[in-house]
Design a protein around this nucleic acid. Structure first.
Length: 792
DNA sequence: CCGATACGCATTTTT
DNA sequence: TGCGTATCGG
């Protein structure tokens, strides 16, 4: 029974066996963190803890799922009764049970970031007009320009993470001062309005799930005690990423037993922009008196070179828990640095290297990952990989659940569950088009604001709220109401996927999509319905007979693309940001764009804590590698980015020379870059936006010249090649393919006749295909304008 | 209600 | 650069 302990090394075993009080497990990269967590939970169950007395919190559904599977393998079906899941899913579960205490009802729905953004947008407008009634339009515009939704949203999110509710926010001097500084003094009122609107509509956003849990426990001692006594042992994964609210809730739940084990790695704390507080892990042993500290220092993932290089980098951080990560694997190759002339050559470097290792060293494509700082940097890499026929997939595009058609269907689900959900209402009131225009919606919105009632309540009895619609509109609204009520009637009667079917048929979505010939969208909706079916089947198998749409939506609202099962996506090179690579491992790692000043370097380097986080980010990138790491930079970047001396180059310099294979030129470039950067630091005026391309100087030079209208022949040409096919803006998931046009396809072009597609490169407006026409030779087509159809 | 056009804006994002 | 959105005219 105890044989699982033999599979652990000494420090892992010690961490698993200590269960008498709080403990902190510092788990270096690749040190078997998940193994410790799963074995520990299995161990707890073996020594007498019942599964429902154990709470295990993770940040991703994926982590929770994987851990559950592994524990099931150890202890069998009992694992099902563990309280294991993401912070958000576990807390939403508690909130649904205890919603009454907070003035919510248990069927509350969850706003994702775009829902709350859209709500905030309308609130900003409203509050602004209200406060500045007397101003002229020009003056209004002057003040309004400071109210950027993204900024407002992040401020409110920060406040919530810090447990600051609107009433406190409005009285807080520091908040007020900061807002006045940024010319957004109305923020407090906007926050309050947003807060009230969410309550009125019975919805919570992601931050609310944490904040309301905290409030629930704070204001209801008996409820807090109930859970604190139930969760006799609490485990937290990735503790370095917890924010204020999460930490506070953990403290609330552990006051009685103090049986808590948190696992994490301070060296991998890279989410401060989302509110994560590295202090939570650094100060754990102070916050939990008598906490034991365990260090997992043996790295099983990487070569000694990788580990050594990573160590030599991270030792420059002051704020960290000292540790000595080591590897007993082979020495391995040096980290290779490639300096190339341009961004495209950087792509070439990656492609050639991959092709070489694939063809001659028998590496599989899935052994490779290309990491970059920001998603926008993937484009050129994608282009060159496509040109070289190297299959790849990009993480971080538009998530499945963010697609319009999916959100539309889910909005119907949300309305059926919680008809007061305002954003869902706005989304579907006239989708598919049923002749209810903006004017009608505006009237409903005004009444909703005036009476503090949800849109649905207004819709149900418009006359009592002073709305007199004409006959036609009244009939249309009535029909919409009947539609929603018809779906509601099925809620507790039918299976989830059956309700899904009802929705797309009754609402007319199905008809609408097939009429529009939106094949991709139809496919996505089908996929969603299949997901519903799978959900039901899984729950039935677990013996949950009464699973309904409410349960489905509760789960789906907290799902992301990363949770989608990867279907037949083998043998592909992976492209992703460093952030999304955390927790993953690859044999060969490329880190590209090292010179990139993708975000203003002054912003990155302005504070010691910011520098340390960037250093940790680079640390994360390097430690993804099992075997080797290739780092590249381009001296010229033709389309995007500036030639600032990058923040990363400085980190590269910090890595001990003995781990790096330097090209000779590199030294010089770094030195020049460094002096250029220092110079720009002293003269403040040289700070440039990172989004200005190099050709900006040319544009500036000709800026004086009045704009010339396009010549007649050019206009004519443009008209003739009117856009016929839209290339999707998001990156295609499969390669080599853009907007459904693949290399190898046969097309018929209006002018050139039949031809074979050799390659397709670019995204968005910039997609170009190289086509070899049977009668006209090889041509480059700008897909945006090309008139053609695919015939094979 | 659509399409064409113009304009502004822009890290990282586990939920 | 290239995307989302606002705006206008048909």
């Amino acid at each position: 029974m105890n044989d699982y302990l033999d599979e652990l090394n000494e420090s892992q075993r010690a961490a698993v066996l200590y269960n008498d009080g709080p403990s902190l497990v510092i788990a270096g990269a690749g040190s078997g963190k998940t193994r410790v967590l799963t074995y520990k939970i299995a161990h707890l169950m073996n020594i007498g803890y019942d599964p429902w007395n154990i709470l295990a919190l993770t940040f991703t559904n994926k982590a929770a799922r994987e851990m559950k599977e592994r524990i099931t393998r150890q202890v069998g079906e009992r694992a099902r009764y563990l309280w294991m899941g993401t912070f958000h899913s576990i807390f939403s579960r508690i909130l649904r049970i205890e919603s009454q205490a907070l003035g919510f009802s248990s069927n509350f729905t969850i706003y994702d970031a775009s829902d709350s953004k859209s709500l905030l947008k309308s609130i900003i407008k409203e509050k602004f007009d209200e406060a500045y009634k007397s101003l002229t339009d020009e003056e209004k515009d002057k003040y309004l320009k400071y109210y950027k939704v993204n900024l407002i949203q992040s401020r409110i999110s920060n406040a919530k993470n810090q447990l600051i509710v609107p009433s406190v926010y409005m009285l807080d001097d520091e908040c007020k001062r900061a807002d006045r500084n940024d010319n957004i003094s109305l923020l407090g009122e906007i926050y309050e309005c947003y807060w009230e609107r969410c309550r009125q509509d019975n919805v919570m956003d992601f931050d609310d799930l944490l904040l309301y849990t905290y409030i629930l426990f704070r204001d209801n001692p008996e409820i807090r005690l109930k859970y604190a006594l139930q969760f006799r042992y609490i485990l937290v994964d990735e503790y370095q990423d917890t924010n204020c609210a999460q930490n506070a809730i953990i403290l609330q739940l552990t006051t009685e037993y103090q049986r808590i084990c948190v696992v994490g790695d301070d060296a991998q704390s890279i989410y401060s922009f989302r509110g994560a507080k590295i202090e939570n892990i650094l100060n754990f042993t102070k916050n939990f008196v008598g906490a034991k500290l365990y260090r997992l220092e043996q790295n099983y993932r990487s070569t000694q070179t990788i580990v050594g290089a990573a160590n030599s980098l991270i030792k420059n951080n002051v704020h960290q828990i000292p540790k000595n990560i080591f590897s007993k694997n082979s020495q391995g190759d040096l980290i290779e640095i490639a300096g190339v002339y341009s961004d495209y050559l950087e792509g070439d470097f990656v492609a050639r290297k991959i092709e070489y290792l694939h063809s001659y060293k028998k590496c599989s494509y899935e052994d490779f990952v290309v990491l970059y700082r920001a998603n926008a940097q993937s484009r050129i890499i994608e282009e060159t990989l496509r040109k070289n026929f190297i299959p790849y997939r990009v993480y971080g595009g538009l998530s499945f659940y963010q697609h319009k058609e999916i959100k539309d269907v889910l909005a119907y689900c949300r309305m059926a569950i919680n008809p007061d959900d305002g954003e869902a209402f706005k989304r579907i009131l006239n989708y598919p088009a049923r002749g209810i225009g903006n004017v009608t919606l505006e009237k409903l919105l005004d009444a909703s604001n005036a009476f503090g009632k949800s849109l649905w309540s207004i819709l149900k009895e418009p006359i009592s709220y002073g709305l007199n619609f004409n006959k036609g509109t009244t009939a249309k609204l009535q029909k919409f109401r009947e539609l929603i009520e018809a779906i509601m009637a099925e809620l507790n009667v039918k299976r989830v996927d059956e309700i899904g079917k009802t929705i797309i048929e009754l609402s007319g979505i199905k008809k609408h999509l097939s009429l529009e010939k939106e094949e991709d969208k139809v496919k996505n909706v089908d996929e969603l319905l299949k997901g519903m079916q799978d959900f039901c089947r899984n729950r039935y198998e677990e013996g949950d007979e009464r699973v309904g749409l409410v349960d489905y939506m509760a789960e789906v609202a907290l799902l992301t693309d990363q949770d989608m099962s990867d279907k037949e996506d083998f043998e592909k090179v992976t492209l992703m940001t460093i952030h999304s690579a955390k927790g993953l491992e690859f044999k060969k790692v490329f880190i590209v764009g090292l010179e990139e000043g993708i975000f203003p370097s002054e912003k990155c380097l302005h504070s010691e804590t910011a520098i340390e986080e960037e250093r940790r980010l680079f640390y994360v990138a390097i430690t993804r590698a099992e075997e080797c790491c290739y780092i590249s930079y381009a001296e010229n970047r033709s389309k995007y980015g500036t030639m600032e001396f990058s923040s990363y180059s400085r980190f590269l310099e910090e890595i001990d020379e003995c781990y790096i294979d330097w090209p000779k030129k590199r030294r010089r470039m770094l030195d020049e870059g460094a002096s250029r950067f220092r110079a720009s630091q002293t003269s403040s005026s040289t700070a440039r936006s990172p989004f200005v391309t190099r050709s900006q100087s040319l544009i500036d030079r000709y800026a004086e010249r009045p704009a010339q209208p396009a010549s007649a022949p050019v206009q004519q040409e443009a008209r003739r090649f009117k856009k016929v096919s839209t290339i999707p803006s998001s990156r295609p998931s499969a390669s080599p393919s853009v907007g459904g046009l693949q290399a190898g396809a046969v097309i018929e072009h209006e002018r050139f006749g039949v031809g074979d597609v050799i390659s397709v490169v670019g995204t968005g407006d910039n997609c170009k295909a190289t086509v070899r026409f049977r009668n006209a030779g090889e041509k480059q087509l700008l897909l945006k304008f090309a008139r053609f159809k695919v015939i094979g």
